[in-house]
Simulated assay, not measured.
Amino acid sequence: MRCDGSVQRAEEDVVEENLRLRRENQQLRDTNELLKLASAFFASELDPQRRK
Rank of each mutant, 00 (worst) to 15 (best):
L35M: 01
S6N: 13
R2E: 15
N32Y: 10
V14Q: 06
A43V: 08
Q27D: 07
A43R: 11
V7D: 06
S39T: 15
R22Q: 13
L21H: 00
K52R: 14
A10V: 05
L35H: 02
A40R: 11
A43S: 09
L28A: 00
L37Q: 15
Q8L: 09
R2L: 13
A38S: 06
L28W: 00
A43G: 08
E24W: 02
E33S: 04
S44L: 00
V15E: 02
K52D: 15
N25K: 03
R9S: 10
N25Q: 09
Q8F: 03
Q49K: 14
M1K: 12
N32R: 08
K52N: 14
R51S: 09
V7N: 07
D30F: 01
M1P: 11
R20M: 01
D13W: 01
N18Y: 10
T31N: 13
L37S: 14
E17A: 07
V7F: 08
N32V: 05
T31D: 13
N25V: 06
L28R: 03
S6W: 11
C3T: 15
N32Q: 12
D30I: 00
T31E: 15
C3L: 14
P48E: 01
R23A: 08
R51N: 09
R29I: 01
K52I: 15
D13I: 02
E45C: 13
D47T: 01
M1I: 14
K52Q: 14
L35C: 01
V15L: 03
R23D: 08
V15C: 03
